[in-house]
């Protein structure tokens, strides 16, 4: 497993979780909320408390659309999406955690699927 300290997540994400004032605007904005087990505001709170392990198992890492609504609307300049991205990167950097093996791709695309979709999905879900 990757190293699971709060400091690692903060360093990779470049985010300061202490700025959070627990308003919940991130989770009030998130379009993927219902698909998440841990919600954007919980990522901020749990990283701040150093509870990293459960987040590494979270399905939210693969539900986040990286739409940056939480980043844009946060009144305090916290970036929940960057925390999610950092945690996802930490998981995927362990080779066995690749979520999107290349051989799966043919079943996932149709004639119109743009390259952009495939490339982004690869960048987000595999290493």
């Amino acid at each position: 497993m990757p190293e699971t300290t709060r400091e690692t997540v903060l360093r990779i994400s470049g985010t300061n979780t202490r700025k959070c004032m627990l308003c919940g605007k991130c989770s009030g904005s998130c379009p993927a909320y219902d698909a998440m087990d841990y919600r954007p505001h919980q990522f901020v709170a749990m990283v701040e408390r150093g509870e990293i392990a459960p987040l590494l198992q979270s399905k939210s890492l693969y539900a986040c659309m990286s739409c940056f609504a939480c980043v844009e609307r946060c009144p305090r300049g916290v970036q929940p999406a960057s925390l999610i991205e950092a945690l996802r990167a930490m998981v995927l950097r362990e080779r066995e955690h690749t979520r999107l093996p290349a051989q799966l791709i043919p079943e996932l695309i149709d004639a119109g699927t743009p390259q952009q979709a495939v490339v982004s999905a690869f960048r987000k879900l595999s290493k």
Binding site: G24, S27, G28, S29, C30, Y33, R39, H41
Partner: peptide, 11 residues
């Protein structure tokens, strides 16, 4: 659309 933090839901 907003969050209801105490009840862990999006309203």
């Amino acid at each position: 659309q907003g969050s209801d933090l105490l009840n862990d839901r999006q309203l």
